[in-house]
Simulated assay, not measured.
Amino acid sequence: MNSAPKVTIYTTPYCPYCHAAKALLKRKGVAYDEIDVQDHTRRQQMMLRASGRRTVPQIFIGDRHVGGSDDIHELDRRGELDTLLQPA
């Protein structure tokens, strides 16, 4: 049995874009691992290495970096997000 890909989102507590991205995932019933990068230099470095970006949120579906809030909402608008979230 294949399972859905792991979703990881790098966030900070007061980021409205982080809240919007998490709300979209919640509406879709998607579980995700949230990594708070506020005041955690090591985690910020991990995020930068993983995505090449310093802004939040940064969202990964499996090993694929899908970008930030605007990117995940655009994937959803185009109908591509559900495909990415399907079990392999």
Results as ranks from 00 to 15, higher is better:
Q38M: 13
S51K: 09
H19A: 10
A20I: 06
H19T: 07
A21E: 06
K28M: 12
M46Y: 04
A31M: 03
Q38T: 11
E34H: 07
T8Y: 05
D36K: 08
M47I: 06
A20P: 01
I35R: 10
M47T: 03
Q44G: 14
T55W: 00
R54T: 13
Y32F: 02
T55E: 11
Y32H: 12
E34A: 07
P13C: 08
V56Q: 15
K26F: 08
K6D: 00
I9D: 04
A31T: 12
R53W: 03
F60H: 13
D39R: 10
A21H: 00
Y14V: 11
Y10P: 06
F60P: 11
T55K: 04
G29Q: 07
A23V: 02
T8H: 12
V7G: 06
K28D: 01
Q58P: 09
V30F: 08
L25K: 04
T12F: 03
G29V: 00
V30A: 01
R49Y: 07
I9A: 14
I59Y: 08
V30H: 03
V37Y: 04
V7H: 01
M46A: 03
P57Y: 14
R43W: 09
T12H: 06
L25T: 12
Q38W: 15
Y14N: 09
T41L: 09
H19W: 14
Y14E: 11
R42E: 14
P57C: 09
C18N: 06
Y17P: 01
E34F: 05
Y17S: 05
A50Q: 15
P57A: 03
R54Q: 08
P16A: 02
I59E: 12
D36T: 05
P16D: 01
R27I: 08
A31C: 00
F60A: 03
R49T: 12
G29E: 06
H19G: 00
D33C: 02
A20C: 04
R54M: 13
R49V: 14
P16W: 08
R27F: 00
E34K: 13
R27P: 04
K22C: 09
Y14K: 11
S51C: 02
A31L: 06
P13L: 04
A20N: 14
R42Y: 02
Q45Y: 12
D33K: 09
T41P: 04
G29W: 07
K28G: 08
